[in-house]
């Protein structure tokens, strides 16, 4: 039996029946019969914690794709998740909640400007275009991805949803970018009415277009519409808007940049785009 080490704040604690939706080397996605928690993930420790995931140490099990198949039966009883076909058992009862950010109550534009510069420099340092030319700004990175963005976010936020399903990766770059935008809007939702308005306008469109992307990406977009984001994304946005400490930014950036092949960078691009449009323009 494995012990889940952390659990997201939207993870189910009640019994469920379900099946494996998809499986990766260090992750299993499960669809459940619960209407309140229809999706739960089992993730390796190196993967980012999400609101609907249990993090486990899969080290002893090698590559999970050798053990588990899409469609395998899963159920949870008494806090223990079982995949009988793979003889995989995960006890979630001792898993700890990962810490969430506090609500942001005040914005300091000078501080945000400085932190934006640090993050943009970090993104530039991380990203190299195919021709080996260094990307010098978030704007250049967005162009490199081929995403379309409105000149003024406030006037045409719906435009961003044209990127849904667009780009490389299991969660296409356009979706990751949109997650970054929504994460910033969500973080200042209560103190900045304009952000709340933009968020709602985007949300309305995204809700109608979830079918245009992969199930997994649609899951994360759905969470975002309810203002839930993964741990690294939550904390990066929080730090960019609040912290005085450069090293904290560097560490938060490093955590995000290590997500997926380019998902982390794509999300950061969305975060920086939204900060520019909403808070620095």
């Amino acid at each position: 039996m494995m012990i889940a080490l952390t659990k997201g704040y939207l993870c189910p604690s009640q019994p469920f029946n379900g099946k494996v939706h998809s499986v990766f080397r260090r992750a299993i996605n499960i669809t459940t019969d619960l209407t309140s928690e229809p999706w739960v993930s089992l993730l390796g420790q190196a993967l980012p914690a999400t609101p609907t995931a249990f993090q486990c140490d899969f080290g002893a099990h090698g590559d999970l794709t050798a053990l588990v198949k899409a469609g395998d039966v899963v159920f949870m009883r008494g806090g223990v998740i079982r995949l009988p076909a793979a003889a995989l058992v995960v006890n979630t009862s001792a898993a700890k909640d990962w810490p969430q950010t506090e609500p942001i109550m005040l914005l300091n534009q000078a501080l945000i400007q400085r932190n934006f510069g640090l993050a943009e420099a970090g993104l530039s340092q991380h990203c190299v275009a195919p021709q080996q030319q260094r990307i010098r700004s978030a704007h250049e990175y967005i162009q490199h991805l081929g995403l379309t963005t409105p000149m003024c976010l406030a006037s045409a936020p719906e435009w961003l949803t044209n990127n849904i399903g667009y780009g490389k990766g299991l969660t296409p770059s356009g979706d990751d970018f949109l997650l970054g935008v929504l994460a910033v809007l969500s973080s200042v939702y209560e103190i900045y009415p304009k952000a709340a308005d933009i968020f709602q306008r985007i949300a309305l469109q995204v809700q109608q277009q979830l079918g245009k992307t992969t199930d997994i990406s649609a899951h994360y977009l759905s969470l975002a519409l309810s203002r839930h984001f993964s741990q690294p994304v939550q904390w990066l946005v929080y730090y960019l808007l609040t912290t005085q400490d450069e090293s904290t930014i560097a560490i938060a950036m490093a955590k995000n940049l290590s997500i997926g092949a380019s998902s982390g960078a794509d999300t950061i691009a969305g975060i920086l785009y939204c900060i520019t449009q909403l808070l620095l323009s």
């Binding site: 998809s22 499986v23 990766f24 080397r25 992750a27 996605n29 899409a70 399903g165 780009g167 490389k168 990766g169 299991l170 969660t171 296409p172 992307t213 992969t214 997994i216 997926g260 092949a261 380019s262 998902s263």
Partner: peptide
């Protein structure tokens, strides 16, 4: 479903094959 890193690796591999002008690996 394949993780993004695997997709990128497969794309890079296919683009290196002599005679392949362009390869695309996407959802």
């Amino acid at each position: 479903y394949q993780d993004s890193v695997s997709l990128m690796q497969i794309s890079a591999r296919l683009n290196k094959i002599v005679g392949v002008d362009e390869a695309s690996v996407v959802m």
